[in-house]
Nucleic acid binder design. Structure first.
Length: 892
RNA sequence: GGUCUUAUAGCUCAGCUGGUUUAGAGCACCUGCCCUACAAGCAGGGGGUCCUAGGUUCGAAUCCUAGUGGGACCA
């Protein structure tokens, strides 16, 4: 066979094996008699590029899918992309702007043509990138939230919910994004702490008759040459143009005198009533609240309650509207600066204070949200929240880590109706059709709409041209919430073969940041439309941060390019780097050094393989040491497989990886291979060789879900394989019974070998010089003597019944004392000092144990096996101390 | 402000229903080694008042309370 390079080069093999897997259709899944294992991908934005979050997320999914496949399940990982309404539309608008085209100059159809072109050009790049990572998705199933099947599903669900009375249309206070020019849901608003100013404004009393003063304790009256006035504290002085009332708390003695009066809005000079409501916080500012029903959610509620006028002073883009009567056309933030000056000049600004408050920003465009009254479509959430809560709280649908159950419950219990309309073109257009004489109908298509419209209006002469479809489209999440159903066409074809087979899906892997946007809503739609959970388990990954704990962002430039990492460390190395740092739910502090560790591990596997494949095989007797090693490794292997299975059951994936890592590196490479390795240029016996290849193959299988490429490469090189024999469709070993005693014996053996090597290192004695070894202690059974002889270069092993001739280096392993006679090489004083230190430690330990045992309450209350353990500790420690003391005596 | 969560080695974390020696791992660090699988390696080594203060208990890193410091979500 050809000579293998001493360093593993991932680039040589990765694309080759990915293509091989594709060519053989190993990623494909069709319903059959096997147990299904299904994951639907969290669809990334169609025009997005791969970032570290995707890497983490998809590595985990691929590990789970590959493992399930190797457990004999019918594994199906469905990929796809999201049309990402706002984000994509914003990108298209930007691109058009660069070409000098304004969106408003285009018709809806023209704009959509540009958007589709953009999508065709940039769409799906991210899926190609996932292939580089090794993702074993069934690419034939790739879905898009705006393709035909998914679009039909969305419209059908909208109509259904409308018919059920769960969708309604109305004027409500919504979060308005003045840049994207659309309403947003509550979840799309991000609150940020800001340093701002609190402005104290003077509202003079109108037609003041000087009445109302009570002289009661706490009363505060402001007056100056122009008369009496109230002081209102606000962070948004520019909204005074929309003031239609002032509100005080009826229990507030400071402002009692204002009750029933009217006051004058500064600069605007509008006279507004003073109303009273306990909603007002007496302690905030002066206890006087300006009420602007059009521009604040709480003020809106007051407006409804007291039937106040609403004056909308903003245009959709955040500039001041005609209705304001002043500053018309200027930007809201410019006006805030200007009005401060104008108020001050007019003597209407009492004072300003520094103030920290939380301001809502648009998740997508990062501009300050404007609360705005507008006509929107809403989905009632009460019923949906109810059906989605219980299964999670009862752990029928499990969250990993479970702490997110709390977050989930909190949201569902305080949920508000979902604003699902967006004033955008890129998305699913709302299937509502307005009639010429007013009113509307909701229908899946124009024909049905026309029928309904005729019936509704009683006008049989209506034509489709008479109907006007709602211009708005739906929130992106209104399509992704159906993803686990719509990918299997369960909305359009309820009960079809695929949905019956694949639904509920098995695991969902996603970030906790979209628990409300997506996870919760999928659970709602799952129960509403399938009567069952959309997935059995949700694995929440952490957020990927840099090693200093900062979020990865473009502006910080601290986000590595995943493809660049793959180039440098190989996909397997990067996958391992991600997983080493990623316990479920914890944020992961990503450090390139972890990819390096991954790459180093690849190299270790590669070199172990080079060793094994370099052996010359011969029919000959199996050495005893090899026979013992082969027997032991089987036990160790099974023990670790059990451990790995347990980790996976608990979704402790990084721990599972660490277990395989140590199994391969420490147990297999450092111990097993050294035990069976023939002397330089000597052949190996066939029996050992074959056992070793078998172990190697098993290890590769265990490693495959984590590191698909190198494991396939080596699996194919272990022996000649059939064209269709791939590691990715092989079966993982089932865990077998293992002998704990055998493993413990080897642990002692390893301890002895390490001890002897240590003696050599300390004394500077060459490994070539053979030692004799004496042991003392009943725990030594001599069964691994051949291994000790081989790995520690020991010529003879004898029980130390007689006094050992000459000076010896001694050490203890468990309760066994090992002595290596070294003649003049031993410095007796040094040895004695070492032993005395050991005795000191043991005596301290013994004292602790004795204290426990002499405590009557401990002996009486503790479980008998615990007491027994303590007694064993005591006797072990005592015997060790005795041995050491004896030894010191001998050396003196 | 509300809810939740967390604090263990230089870093990232295990440590499960309290008792597996006087707390572990990986990485990093230090000291030796190019000994033909592997320097992307090998052999050794150091390193912790388990955040603080109380409490429960025969026994606390583990359970409870308070405080302090992180983090997340919601308003």
């Amino acid at each position: 066979m050809e000579e293998l390079a001493s360093k593993y080069n991932p680039a040589d093999v990765e694309s080759k094996w990915y293509q091989y897997w594709l060519d053989n259709g190993f990623f494909k899944s069709k319903p059959d008699g096997r147990e299904p294992y299904t994951i639907v991908i969290p669809p990334p934005n169609v025009t997005g590029v791969l970032h570290m979050g995707h890497m983490l997320n998809n590595t985990i999914q691929d590990i789970l899918v590959r493992r399930a496949r190797m457990m004999g399940k019918n594994a199906c990982w469905v990929p796809g992309t999201d049309h990402a309404s706002i984000a994509t539309e914003a990108k298209v608008v930007n691109k058009l702007a660069q070409e000098g085209i304004k969106k408003t100059d285009l018709t809806r159809e023209q704009f959509l043509e540009h958007a589709w072109e953009w999508t065709r050009k940039h769409g799906g790049i991210i899926l190609e990138q996932l292939k580089k990572l090794g993702a074993s998705c069934d690419w034939d199933r790739t879905g898009f939230t705006m393709d035909e099947t998914r679009s039909k599903s969305v419209i059908k669900v909208f109509c259904d919910l409308y018919e059920k009375g769960l969708i309604y249309r109305g004027v409500r206070m919504v979060n308005w994004d003045p840049k994207a020019l659309t309403a947003l849901s509550d979840e799309e608003v991000i609150y940020k702490e800001e340093h701002s100013k609190l402005f104290y404004l003077k509202y003079y009393v109108a037609d003041d008759d000087m009445s109302g003063e009570t002289g009661a304790e706490g009363e505060i009256i402001h007056r100056d040459a122009k008369g009496r006035y109230a002081v209102v504290a606000t962070t948004r002085p520019e909204t005074i143009m929309g003031d239609t009332a002032m509100c005080i708390n009826p229990k507030d003695p400071k402002n009692r005198w204002l009750a029933g009066k009217k006051v004058i809005v500064p600069l605007v000079n509008r006279v507004i009533p003073v109303i009273e409501d306990e909603y007002v916080d007496i302690e905030f500012g002066t206890g006087c609240l300006k009420v602007t029903p059009a521009h604040d959610v709480n003020d809106y509620m007051l407006g409804e309650k007291y039937n106040l006028q609403t004056i909308d002073i903003f245009n959709d883009n955040g500039s001041i509207s005609e209705a304001a009567g002043m500053y018309v056309g200027q930007d809201r933030f410019d006006v805030r600066k200007q009005i401060e000056k104008d108020l001050d000049a007019a003597g209407l600004l009492e004072k300003t204070e520094d103030y920290n408050n939380k301001v809502g920003y648009s998740e997508r465009t990062n501009v300050v949200i404007e609360p705005k009254l507008s006509m929107q479509w809403f989905l009632k959430m009460e019923h949906l929240a109810k059906i989605a809560l219980e299964p999670v709280m009862k752990d029928e649908l499990k969250f990993y880590p479970p702490k997110y159950k709390n977050t989930y419950r909190n949201w569902l219990e305080n949920i508000k109706d979902w604003c699902i309309s967006r004033q955008l073109w890129w998305g699913h257009r709302i299937p509502a059709y307005f009639l010429p004489q007013g009113g509307y109908v909701v229908a899946e298509n124009e024909e049905k709409a026309l029928e309904l419209a005729k019936a509704k209006s009683g006008n049989n002469n209506l034509t489709i041209a008479d109907l006007r479809q709602d211009e708005d489209c739906l929130d992106t999440w209104f399509s992704s919430w159906l993803w686990p159903i719509s990918l299997f066409d369960g909305i359009n074809n309820p009960g079809n073969e695929e949905i019956k087979y694949y639904y509920p899906t098995s695991d969902l892997v996603t970030g906790p940041d979209i628990i409300f946007f997506w996870v919760a809503r999928m659970i709602m739609s799952g129960y509403e439309y399938q009567g069952d959970m959309p997935f059995k388990n949700v694995y929440f990954t952490g957020i990927v941060r840099d090693k200093l704990g900062r979020k990865m962002s473009k502006s910080l430039g601290n986000s590595p390019d995943p493809l660049d990492l793959i180039d440098r460390f190989g996909a397997d190395g990067v996958r391992m780097g991600m997983m080493l740092s990623a316990p479920a739910g914890n944020d992961i502090l990503f450090d390139e050094a972890l990819c390096e560790q991954g790459r180093n591990f690849n190299n270790k596997i590669w070199n172990a393989f080079r060793l094994v494949k370099g052996w010359e095989v011969k029919e000959m007797e199996q050495p005893e040491s090899a026979q013992k090693a082969v027997k032991w490794f089987k036990q160790q292997l099974n023990k670790t497989i059990a451990e790995i299975n347990d980790c996976f059951d608990k979704y402790r994936i990084s721990e599972a990886l660490m277990a395989v890592y140590k199994l391969f590196w420490d147990e297999f490479s450092s111990w097993y291979l050294e035990m069976v390795k023939p002397a330089y240029q000597q052949p190996i016996d066939k029996e050992t060789y074959e056992a070793t290849l078998n172990y190697f193959e098993t290890l590769l299988k265990l490693l495959h879900p984590f590191m698909p490429f190198i494991t396939e490469e080596l699996y194919q090189n272990i022996k000649e394989r059939d064209a269709k024999d791939s590691i990715m469709v092989s079966l993982l070993p089932k865990v077998e019974e293992y002998c704990e005693k055998n493993i413990n014996r080897m642990e002692i053996t390893k301890g002895i070998i390490a001890g002897i090597r240590n003696v050599r290192a300390n004394k500077g004695i060459s490994p070539r010089e053979a030692f004799e070894m004496y042991y003392k202690g009943s725990d030594f059974d001599g069964k691994n003597n051949s291994i000790i002889e081989k790995l520690a270069n020991v010529s003879k092993i004898t029980e130390a019944t007689d006094e050992i001739k000459g000076a010896a280096a001694t050490f203890m392993v468990s309760t066994i004392e090992i002595s290596i006679p070294l003649g003049n090489n031993v410095n007796a004083e040094e040895e004695i000092k070492k032993m005395e230190e050991e005795i000191k430690y043991l005596e301290g330990f013994l004292a602790g144990v004795e204290k426990k045992l002499s405590n009557e309450k401990f002996v009486a209350n503790a479980k008998p096996e615990i007491v027994e353990k303590e007694r064993k500790k005591k006797s072990d420690a005592e015997s060790k101390i005795a041995t050491l003391k004896e030894n010191i005596a001998k050396m003196k």
